[in-house]
Design a protein around this nucleic acid. Structure first.
Length: 890
RNA sequence: GGGUGGUUAGCUCAGUUGGUUAGAGCACCUGCUUUACACGCAGGGGGUCACUGGUUCGAAUCCAGUACCGCCCACCA
């Protein structure tokens, strides 16, 4: 065997950086918009510009990279467009905290200065996460990197706002919105997270005007009574018929409250009387609209009570609740208190409890936009993987509500609306109008609010390619093919992109949506900063290498479920990469530079290959076929497992082991050539098959195998293997499996009878099936190697040698003479155990066959199979018994 | 409350149209410096497939229900 410089262990460090730089330099990742080829494009789910990489990103982007690299090797012009999101509220919150540390605040700095500070911060951090993606090996087209706040993307945002406004799909109105008192902005429904907590239900007594009677209303938020303007009962509720239209008196503030009847009220709940607070409860707001009730806002934007709260002005809601309850108690107006579990909406960015709050906001009418998006799924044009997510998508799109798009933030796309200070005229425009179109005044100011972050991200699949300009890249790469994301943003992002795609480009923006799980820790908990259970992917790469990270993540992520990941999970991928490395190392040591590129890539000109060669080629092609099928249906885990199984257990455990004797010249010179050809051909296929999953190690090995200098070409330019069905031979695989069973049996006897590997044994094979006997005879040299055999005797009518251990498999008996070595008790219990096993199986089979209904109704093949088994088991049982009997004679 | 995913070996999971001796990786036990790999090789132990009923000749697999875990959605005060 030739000496080699190749290390015994794969060392990814150095390799990865070098190869990635080379790929970048050669421009392999850049997509050509003038291509004639079929295209395949993906837009990245843009991470927040200031994010740092976590395992969720690592998984998400590894999957995209597998898809892109695979498609590229299938011959497509691939485009994977990367970029980041300005993440309005999230980023603003972070910078607010930073300036707070400096002892100042957003308001103190003023809008212009604060926005500048955010820009500074973002510019400093932006691109960090994209650089981290490079470490994973992502083949993004970096020349097309976009940011949702880029000038061109901002133009797209304005264009969209104006178009929707012209179609009357955008409107401004006073509504109850979710208000975060800390961020002091509205939030869309989808930005509110619900949390359960134990609370109380307070029963408050409302005195009827001019009478000494009370109506009692239950509430979960007693402090909001300060904004009550009515009481409501169900019109059919007989208990309260007589009070409808009467007046009650609000405790503490002594405001007069109308008593109204509304179907919304559930007579079963509480007392059947509801206090109505139109400005601070969405339902109450609806009721107040129907009954034309006064709406009294008792909150300041920061969540403290305002002048409408009388003496409680300035209290925060918590203090107000305490004070109000104390006063009610004192006045004897608190009827009772019950325990009650309820949910509170909290801000998805800062977890502050959100207040329903009446304010003026901008909305998008979603119903008309949702219609084609619903149809896309129903018609099968838009597919989810796993499929069940389409239900979630449909549930939301079919029950869609208008989208509140204005945010009272400073970091974001400012709404392109201008007002005249003189006549209040409203103008929608991309740039500030010089003069009021109505009164000619030059005193014009822009709307203060900015747009929801998602108002730019829902345009991402086409704004990034230059829309609204009809660019060449838009034409070539849009619509995109697939989208990879997590389930949390099916509503926030996926569905809205589909809507925007149809509305503004008339096209479905992608056909396949792959939803992967959320990465969890070993105990199944979400990884989070507060728990401190997160794993830093960069740390993983530093410790194990990028290929290990990628392979491990994919191998550990069950299809459509959440993967549980611990640091040692990454040993899985590392070991696999190392196994591949060493298998290749072995091949390279033995092949030298004997094979040409052509020989590595084709096997057609070799005739009359021996069993094992035809077997590994059959397995290889079967693996190619199945892997391709799995990739086509977005089953990455299954695809990776197929490759793992084939490479490790078929190619390494069996084929390489079988080939060793041939390489060492134990067969003919001609056979040695065949072995080398097949070894090399399979390895070349393996590297290509695995490249999308483990780009670095496969590239490195491919160069070594093809004896290419550094930087000379890339495995990426090779064609992904296609299955040659003619080479798949199931019959032959079955014969090989029988040969393997013989080897297993020999090894089992050796191990259980404590025959050390260093001691070669004599083996007698009594084979009654001629086909098997012939195969074993032809391959006896390999049996000798695999079983560490000194002398092999094969025949159809051998006698069991005295003092030998035995094993029985269908149509074969294995004897290993062990004079002096054999322990009779061990051998007896070994045989007895096996006898028990087979007897159980035999009984089970006999029972089935004794069942007349089974024999009559089951398909013939199934019954025949059981008959065959019965025979097999009978034969084995009988032979084991004979061997046992012989033992007792000792 | 509605929806949805899960429950198979100590742990993480396969098991694609019902018929396999129910599998793999990790962990565990026993051997092994066998000239690719100890990040390895060989052998082995370990499961009443959550529970209950049903359909069927036959159920881990199909149906119904129960329990537990998880996620998403939800304006019942």
């Amino acid at each position: 065997m030739a000496e080699t410089k190749i290390a015994k262990q794969y060392n990814p460090f150095g390799v990865e950086e070098r190869l990635y730089q080379d790929w970048l330099q050669k421009g392999y990742f850049h997509a050509n918009e003038d291509t004639e080829k079929k295209t395949y494009s993906i837009v990245i789910p843009p991470p927040n510009a200031t994010d740092i990489l976590h395992l969720g990103h690592a998984l998400n982007n590894t999957l995209q990279d597998v898809m892109i690299r695979w498609q590229k090797m299938l011959g497509k012009e691939t485009c994977w467009l990367p970029g980041t999101d300005h993440a309005g509220i999230a980023t603003q919150v972070v910078v607010e905290k930073l300036v707070a540390k400096e002892g100042t605040s957003r308001r103190e700095l003023g809008r212009d200065e604060f926005v500048k500070r955010v820009w500074d911060y973002v510019s400093d951090r932006k691109g960090r996460i994209l650089n981290q993606l490079k470490k994973i090996g992502c083949s993004c087209d970096w020349e097309r990197t976009r940011f949702t706040f880029d000038e061109q993307l901002s133009e797209a945002v304005k264009e969209v706002f104006i178009r929707l406004h012209e179609k009357n799909l955008i409107y401004k109105g006073k509504y109850i919105v979710n208000w975060c008192p800390r961020c002091q902005t509205s939030l869309s429904d989808d930005e509110v997270e619900h949390q359960n907590y134990a609370s109380k239900l307070w029963f408050i007594k409302y005195k009827l005007k001019g009478q000494d009677q009370y109506l009692i209303a239950a509430t979960t938020r007693p402090e909001t009574m300060l904004g009550d303007t009515a009481l409501a009962v169900n019109p059919k509720d007989e208990r309260y018929q007589k009070y409808i239209g009467k007046t009650a008196i609000l405790p503490i503030l002594d405001r007069e409250l109308k008593i109204v009847a509304d179907d919304y009220v559930d007579p079963e709940f509480g007392t059947g009387v509801v206090k109505i607070t139109p400005a601070h409860d969405p339902n109450d707001f609806e009721i107040s609209q129907r009954h034309d009730l006064e709406k009294i806002n008792i909150l300041n934007p920061d969540g403290t009570l305002n002048e409408n709260a009388g003496k409680f002005k300035g209290f925060d809601t918590k203090a107000a609740r305490k004070a109000v309850l104390a006063e009610l108690e004192k006045k004897g107006l608190l009827d009772k208190i019950e325990d009650y579990d309820l949910t509170a909406g909290t801000c998805y960015r800062c977890s502050t409890i959100v207040e329903p709050y009446l304010s003026e906001q901008w909305f998008v009418r979603m119903k008309p936009l949702a219609e084609p998006a619903i149809e896309a799924v129903k018609s099968g044009q838009l597919r989810f993987h796993p499929e069940h997510w389409e239900k979630t998508y449909l549930y939301w799109t079919e029950n869609i509500r208008d989208w509140c798009i204005s945010r009272q933030l400073w970091w974001g796309h400012r709404i392109p609306v201008y007002y005249c200070r003189d006549c209040n005229h409203e103008m929608i425009a991309k740039v500030k109008p010089e003069k009021c179109e109505k009164c000619n005044s030059a005193d014009i100011y822009q709307e203060e609010d900015v747009l929801d972050t998602w108002f730019s991200s829902w345009l991402w699949p086409f704004s990034t390619f230059g829309w609204p300009s009809q660019t060449r890249e838009l034409e070539t790469f849009y619509p995109t093919n697939s989208l990879f994301t997590a389930s949390e943003i099916i509503f926030l992002w996926v569905a809205r992109m589909v809507m925007a795609g149809y509305e503004f480009t008339g096209k479905l923006c992608f056909n396949d949506v792959y939803i992967h799980g959320t990465v969890r820790d070993a105990q199944g908990r979400k990884m989070s900063k507060s728990l401190g259970n997160g794993i830093d992917p960069i740390e993983v790469i530093n410790q194990y290498g990028a290929d290990s990270l990628r392979l491990s993540l994919i191998l550990a992520t069950p299809e459509g479920q959440d993967p549980n990941i611990a640091m040692n999970t990454f040993e899985l991928g590392r070991n696999f990469a190392n196994k591949l490395w060493n298998a290749s190392r072995f091949i390279l040591m033995n092949l030298g530079d004997e094979l040409t590129d052509g020989e590595l890539e084709s096997i057609d000109d070799i005739r009359e290959l021996p069993l094992m060669d035809r077997w590994i080629l059959s397995r290889l092609n079967e693996t190619i076929k199945k892997t391709t099928e799995q990739l086509q249906s977005f089953r990455f885990n299954a695809a990776a497992k197929l490759l793992y199984e084939f490479i490790w257990h078929d190619y390494c455990d069996w084929y390489i082991e079988l080939a060793k004797g041939r390489l060492y010249g134990e067969e003919s010179a001609e056979d040695q050539v065949k072995a080398k050809r097949v070894l090399g051909f399979c390895l070349d296929g393996i590297l290509k098959l695995l490249h999308p999953f483990a780009p670095f190690v496969t590239e490195e090995l491919w160069h070594l195998l093809h004896r290419r200098d550094e930087g000379d070409g890339s495995i990426m330019e090779a064609r992904y293997p296609r299955a040659n069905e003619k080479l798949i031979d199931i019959k032959l695989e079955e014969m090989m499996a029988r040969l393997q069973r013989v080897v297993y049996a020999i090894r089992n006897i050796r191990a259980e009878m404590n025959v050390p590997p260093s001691k070669k044994a004599e083996v007698h094979l009594k084979i009654t099936d001629p086909a098997l006997r012939e195969t074993l005879e032809q391959n006896q040299n390999y049996l000798i190697n695999l079983g560490k055999i000194e002398k092999l005797v094969i025949g159809d009518d051998l006698k069991k040698p005295q003092l030998s251990a035995s094993a029985v498999i269908p149509s074969a008996e294995i004897f290993i003479p062990l004079a002096g070595l054999i322990d009779v008790d061990t051998e007896r219990s070994r045989l007895q155990k096996e006898l028990e096993n087979i007897t159980k199986l035999l009984e089970k089979t006999r029972k089935k066959l004794a069942n007349r209904e089974f024999v009559e109704q089951a398909p013939k093949e199934v019954v025949d199979k059981q008959r065959e088994k019965e025979q097999e088991y009978e034969e084995v049982v009988q032979k084991i018994n004979a061997n046992l009997e012989q033992l007792t004679g000792w």
